[in-house]
Design a protein around this nucleic acid. Structure first.
Lengths: 148, 148
DNA sequence: TCGATATAATTAGGCAGCTAACTAAGTATC
DNA sequence: GATACTTAGTTAGCTGCCTAATTATATCGA
């Protein structure tokens, strides 16, 4: 980054690098074949206590396109992590639900992620995180609104 | 994000979302077929004043794998943006240089990116950026060191 | 000098994200 | 009720990123 670049550009650049580092740190500890995207789906069901969701609901929850979600869900179904059934109330839609294997996999991933997370908490000062959190949330809100 | 998640997790999640928003905002204004990755390569040459670099030098400058850089450079060469020649001093290596079209494209991209950048500076308070910059830099440094 | 090791780049295969274009099904309007 | 519009999902094709394995060239050491 040159000193002549706008500061906003530097901020976005740092953010990109941090995202890359975090994603790869997490991906490295996940079971072979599991990705952050797939874990996120598993986690979503358990955390929000949903029994079943439609692909479109999942896509908009994660702000990704429907084709991307179709693709991820297909992979997860092949791996036995979710079950996809037609929606009895709407012929256009489908219902996605976790399988027992999906629940187990989520627990396994959580356990594996605790390592990197602990490492972060050991190395990153708590006040740095505390200062970043609200400011990043604010920036995200602003950028979200700017899309219109 | 649940309230029970560690704050560090929230921070990384926000960072991922912001990265996605920024990348797509920039990609949207770039000329058809141009990507942020390709623009970054173009920009690298001009900003650092390099005449030519090897693919490996570029890969490590951006912290991406060599196969990824091979791929991006191949695309850029097909588009006429760079010229790739064997290194006369090392038979294993190659030299990548910008073409005139590459310079022109970089200027064009810069002009197009000024729109989103101006929008950001109009909507995001300067002090928010100023507060984020050093803290993100710090976090990035720490996470970079944690890889060892 | 020759064999072992290291480095540069590529190829093959895989996941995630996107847009564009398509099918099927529900809804609304005339 | 027939037509038009909207919504859910998929398919096709693209980019970017990755790891593993391969090829070719350098380099180092015995």
């Amino acid at each position: 980054m040159s000193d002549t670049d706008p500061l906003a550009f530097k901020v976005l650049n740092e953010i990109g690098i941090i995202d890359q580092l975090a994603t790869s740190a997490f991906t490295d500890v996940l079971p072979r074949g599991m990705s952050v995207a797939q874990f996120t789906v598993l986690n979503h069901f358990v955390r929000l206590g949903h029994t079943s969701r439609s692909p479109t609901q999942l896509a908009s929850a994660f702000q990704i396109s429907r084709p991307t979600m179709t693709n991820t869900l297909a992979r997860m179904e092949r791996a036995g992590l979710v079950k996809i059934a037609p929606d009895p109330e709407d012929g256009r839609s489908k219902r996605v639900a976790l399988t027992a294997a999906g629940h187990t996999m989520r627990e396994d991933c959580l356990a594996r992620l605790s390592g990197p997370l602990a490492a972060m908490q050991a190395h990153v000062p708590a006040d740095l995180i505390a200062e970043l959190a609200p400011r990043l949330a604010r920036l995200r809100e602003i950028m979200d609104q700017m899309r219109d």
